[in-house]
Design a protein around this nucleic acid. Structure first.
Length: 313
DNA sequence: TTCTGTTTAGCCAACT
DNA sequence: AGTTGGCTAAACAGAA
C-alpha cells in the first residue's frame, strides 16, 4: 500500500473540478471575493499540478467563471484599481456538491427568475456582495475578530446567522465521504443527528471529536494568524467543533485508495488534513503548539501539526 | 501587448 | 441509451 509522498500532489490531478477549486479560492479569503489572478495564484499555490499547462486550465477556469451562474462578477470600485473584476459565489447557489463528489455536481446551478433568492437584477448580487466585502474589511480594520457572516441576500428571505455557504471550506471538508468500498462516513452534522457511526469515530479519533479540544464557541477570526499555510481560515476547519474526516471523492478511485480508514486517496490536499488518513489513531501526535506547517507538502507529511494548529485556536 | 471575459463546439465520463 | 456535467480548445472583444 503506497503511502503518499512529499510530491504526491505534483503528480496527480486533485480530485476537484474547476468549480470547486474556484469556490475554495473565493471562500478562502475574508472578503469572499477574488480577482481572477488571485484565484490562479491560490490554485497554483495549493496544487502543484496546476503549475504546469497554465494556459489550458486557466482558460477552462475562465470559461467556468463565465459559464456558471454560481459565480458572480463584481466590478471593481474606483478605489480598487487593477485589472479585471472580482469574482464571488452566488449566495443561493445551493449545495451543488451534496453528493460528496467534488468532481461532478449533481445539478448545475442556474439562477431561476422564480428563485426567491435570486436578485431581481444581476447587479444586485454584485452590489450586495461588494457591501458584504466592505463590511468584512471594516471589521478587519477595526481589529475585530468577529467578522460579519456572509448572510443571505437582503431580498426578504432570511437565513440563520449561522448560515455557512455551501462552498465554505468548512462545508467542503465536512461532507459525507463515501469510501470506495461503499462504506460511508457521515458529516458531524449527520452524526449529531444521531448517526450510529458517531461512537465508532469518536473511539477512533477521540482527539478530533472531543469538544474539549476545540473551542466550539470561538468566533471565526480572520486575523492573518488564523490562516493556515494553505490560506484556509484555520478556524473554518473546525466549524463549531464539527471537525470531521470528510474527503472529496474522486469519481475514479485512485490505485492508492482502498477501503479502510488508513487508505484514502493520496492526493487529498493537506488543508483537508483532518482526514482519517492524517488522523488515524496510529498517526503520531507529535505536533507542537507552533503554527501551521510552512508548506503544504510539509503538512502532507506531518498532518498532525496542521491539526494541532486547528485545535489550539 | 497582455490579460480578462464571453461564447461556441466537441469530446468524454458519470449519471439516470 | 439518453441526458447532463466537466474539460478542453478556440475565436473574439474589450479593458488595462
Amino acid at each position: 500500500m503506497p503511502r503518499p509522498g512529499r510530491n504526491t500532489y505534483s503528480d496527480q490531478k486533485p480530485p476537484y473540478s474547476y468549480i470547486s477549486l474556484t469556490a475554495m479560492a473565493i471562500q478562502s479569503c475574508p472578503e469572499k471575493m477574488l480577482p481572477l489572478s488571485e484565484i490562479y495564484k491560490f490554485i497554483m499555490d495549493r496544487f502543484p499540478y496546476y503549475r504546469e499547462n497554465t494556459q489550458r486550465w486557466q482558460n477552462s477556469l475562465r470559461h467556468n467563471l463565465s459559464f456558471n451562474d454560481c459565480f458572480i462578477k463584481i466590478p471593481r470600485r474606483p478605489d480598487q484599481p487593477g485589472k479585471g473584476s472580482f469574482w464571488a459565489l452566488h449566495p443561493s447557489c445551493g449545495d451543488m456538491f451534496e453528493n460528496g463528489s467534488f468532481l461532478r455536481r449533481r445539478k448545475r446551478f442556474k439562477v431561476m427568475a422564480s428563485d426567491p433568492l435570486a436578485p431581481s437584477k444581476p447587479s444586485d448580487a454584485a452590489h450586495y456582495l461588494q457591501q458584504q466585502a466592505k463590511l468584512r474589511l471594516s471589521a478587519l480594520a477595526a481589529g475585530g475578530t468577529h467578522l460579519p457572516q456572509m448572510s443571505s441576500y437582503n431580498l426578504g428571505v432570511s437565513q440563520p446567522s449561522t448560515f455557512k455557504h455551501p462552498f465554505a471550506i468548512e462545508n467542503i471538508i465536512a461532507r459525507e465521504y463515501k469510501m470506495p468500498g461503499g462504506l460511508a462516513f457521515s458529516t458531524m452534522q449527520s452524526m449529531s443527528a444521531g448517526y450510529p457511526l458517531h461512537n465508532q469515530l469518536t473511539t477512533a479519533w477521540p482527539h478530533m471529536y472531543s469538544t474539549s479540544v476545540i473551542d466550539t464557541a470561538a468566533p471565526i477570526s480572520m486575523a492573518s494568524s488564523d490562516y493556515s499555510a494553505y490560506g484556509m481560515p484555520i478556524k473554518s476547519l473546525c466549524h463549531g467543533g464539527q471537525t470531521l474526516p470528510a474527503i472529496p471523492v474522486p469519481i475514479k478511485p485512485t490505485p492508492a485508495s482502498v477501503p479502510g480508514l488508513s487508505a484514502l486517496p493520496a492526493h487529498i490536499p493537506a488543508f483537508l488534513s483532518n482526514s482519517p488518513q492524517s488522523l488515524s489513531p496510529t498517526s503520531p501526535q507529535t505536533a507542537t503548539s507552533q503554527s501551521s506547517p510552512a508548506t503544504p507538502s510539509e503538512a502532507l507529511t506531518n498532518p498532525a501539526s496542521a491539526l494541532q494548529s486547528v485545535a489550539v485556536h
